[in-house]
């Protein structure tokens, strides 16, 4: 269980997150929604340990992210929006580097790598340099890097951005499957993605959590029974 308690974060003199509180349980795919500049990425960075919140704490299974940083980060993975892969490395080099960072042993690495190469369809490009990969492969490589350690919490910033419809579908199915056992937190603008994947929706507006509900309940807000309309209604457009 990932508990976010009263997180506040300021950057550049501006408070981006105001006292955010929520709790994520295993077996959930959570969609983090919000207009541009609402603080989605900042929140994800706080959850991933990249930013230290000015106030509040992040607790995973009773362990505090600040105090037991390595323990928490061992069970948590984050893929930023831009991918965060090294263009000069080959896919294999990148994945083995990520495995080393997560302190995986050889057996775990072998098993997980074989599985992920197949599941994310990366076998063809394993020896290709990341900079030469298409956007879809790049996203999948970054995802594979994050998932190598089978994290309990997977935090993805706009994971399907730039993918073709087929790839999107494939990835959604994959994440949905993963979310059955673990926590998957995705930030997205695409409402159909929320509809297709999410078990729960967190909506942030101006750095404040304004809605924590299920997609079904969210739809009920407007007469259209449409997430997009509900979203617009809540954010005020």
């Amino acid at each position: 269980m990932l508990v976010v308690k009263n997180i506040t974060k300021s950057l550049g003199g501006r408070t981006i997150l105001h006292h955010i509180n929520f709790c994520l349980r295993k077996g959930e795919v959570i969609a983090l929604l919000g207009p541009n500049g609402a603080g989605k990425t900042t929140l994800m960075r706080c959850l991933s340990g990249f930013y230290t919140p000015d106030e509040g704490e992040v607790v995973l299974n009773g362990k505090n992210l600040e105090k037991q940083r390595f323990d928490v980060l061992q069970r948590l993975a984050y893929v930023p929006e831009a991918g965060g892969i090294y263009p000069d490395m080959t896919v294999y080099e990148y994945l083995s580097f990520m495995a080393e960072l997560k302190h995986l042993d050889k057996q775990q690495f072998d098993e997980n790598l074989s599985y992920l190469l197949k599941a994310l369809d990366l076998r063809e490009v394993i020896n290709q340099r990341c900079e030469t990969l298409s956007k879809g492969y790049k996203r999948r490589t970054a995802l594979a890097g994050a998932m190598l350690s089978r994290p309990e919490v997977l935090i993805l910033d706009e994971p399907t951005e730039g993918l073709d419809p087929q790839q999107k579908q494939h990835l959604r199915a994959f994440l949905k499957k993963y979310g059955r056992e673990d926590i998957v937190l995705i930030s997205t603008h695409i409402m159909e993605e929320v509809d297709a994947m999410a078990d729960r929706v967190l909506l942030i507006k101006d750095g404040k959590l304004v809605c924590d509900t299920t997609p079904e309940d969210l739809k009920k807000i407007t007469p259209d029974k449409d997430i997009e309309s509900s979203f617009c209604t809540i954010v005020g457009r």
Binding site: T90, V91, Y92, S114, L117, R123, I126, N127
Partner: peptide, 8 residues
Amino acid sequence: VRRRAEEY
């Protein structure tokens, strides 16, 4: 390294 990768 490439050969090792191909084994996977």
